[in-house]
Simulated scan of single mutants.
Amino acid sequence: MNTGTATRVDTALADPYRHTLVIGATGTTGSRVAAQLAAGGHRVMAAGRRATAVATAVATAVAGARAVRFDWDDPATFHEALRGADRVYLIPPIGSFEPAAVVLPFLEQARAAGVRRVVLLSSSAIPAGGPATGQIHEALPGLFDEWAVLRPSWFMQNFTGDHPHARSIRADGTVLTATGEGRVGFVDADDIAAVAVRALTDDRAPNTDLVITGPQALSYGDVAAVLAEVMGRTVTHRRLTYEQMRDRLAPAVPAEFAAMLAGMDRAIAEGSEDRTTDTVHRLTGRPPVTFRAFAERELA
């Protein structure tokens, strides 16, 4: 009798019609995770707030994936997004100081719907039990037998597109932070996504906390110097105080979140992010991208 039960369970878990739900599938890491999963032959449900935008992104960049509307502010969208999912790439609501209030009820619903593995995107600056995503991190092992928490360092992509650093570099050749001489193991979002895909698809349950960095710890002054060389123009790091950084962020995000982000800069100045890990190489079999290679790739 026990053997028969195990066989039925294994068959259910191997159901080829089940898929991985990727939340934030048009975002920096979510889009890359969806694309890499689909390229590897995995079934993907790409989720985002604007169904049309998600569908367009899926059609142009993520062949083999399907699109579904998902909005953290609209729990009515959870059920359809979870239909048929057995794994979830979880990006909590952006800019929320207390995301656990909405994410934990979603995870309860996900477990009831048959999800068995969740990979959470958190931050190297936030440990289990810490603020914001730290509360979700702490709860995850009690909700799922298979889980992983990705805690990447600061993204190299923060210097591209419409990010504040990219805008200030374009405007006047400055990078503004309250990090002083503190160093950061900046990491490429492509490398984060590659680690996420391994955590989602490895046959063995990951059940681990993965701090993800690039190969070098660099100060923002170091970053400015690399950008200046690659771009062929003057780029400098302008140091702000904690209060100046908090006030600079305040118009764009809630006050508590601005204070937390400015506090992360202050922690960097005190050495909190001055480290590198072997996570990318250990899980993917290749070294992480250097900041110079990233900058040269983006400029090209």
Rank of each mutant, 00 (worst) to 15 (best):
T179K: 11
M1K: 07
T279D: 04
V280I: 09
L120Y: 05
A148N: 01
A100M: 02
A262P: 06
P93R: 03
A81C: 06
T284A: 01
R151W: 00
A6K: 12
R116L: 10
R198Q: 12
V33H: 00
F294C: 10
V235C: 08
A100E: 15
A85E: 09
L90T: 04
S168K: 12
A258D: 09
L218H: 08
T20R: 07
I136T: 06
G271D: 11
L140V: 08
L299K: 14
E138D: 15
Q244E: 15
Q157L: 08
A65I: 02
F155S: 03
D172R: 14
P75T: 10
T174S: 15
V68T: 15
V184Q: 13
A217W: 02
S168I: 04
D265T: 01
M260F: 13
I192E: 13
A25R: 08
P92D: 05
A139R: 14
N158W: 07
G30N: 03
A166V: 06
M1E: 11
M260H: 12
V58W: 11
R116A: 05
A101P: 04
Q157I: 06
A199R: 05
F186R: 03
T284G: 10
D278N: 14
A112Y: 00
P206L: 01
M156Q: 12
L120R: 04
E296V: 13
I126V: 15
R167C: 08
A125Q: 14
S124Y: 12
T52I: 11
M260I: 02
A194G: 07
V289Q: 15
V118N: 03
A35S: 15
Q157T: 10
A46H: 11
A85M: 05
D71H: 07
G41R: 01
R198N: 09
R170K: 14
A65S: 03
G40Q: 10
G161W: 05
P215N: 09
G182W: 10
D188G: 01
A217T: 05
T52G: 13
A55S: 14
R66L: 08
F144T: 04
R204T: 13
G27R: 02
T179V: 08
L176A: 15
V22A: 07
Q36M: 11
A57P: 05
G161T: 06
R69I: 02
I212Q: 02
T77R: 07
A113N: 12
A267C: 04
P152Q: 07
H237A: 14
R286M: 03
R83M: 10
D247G: 08
R18N: 10
S96M: 06
E298Y: 14
E256T: 13
E273M: 14
V226Q: 06
A12Y: 13
I169E: 11
A53K: 12
A269P: 03
Y242M: 03
A46M: 08
G48S: 13
R69D: 06
V280A: 09
M1Y: 08
L120D: 01
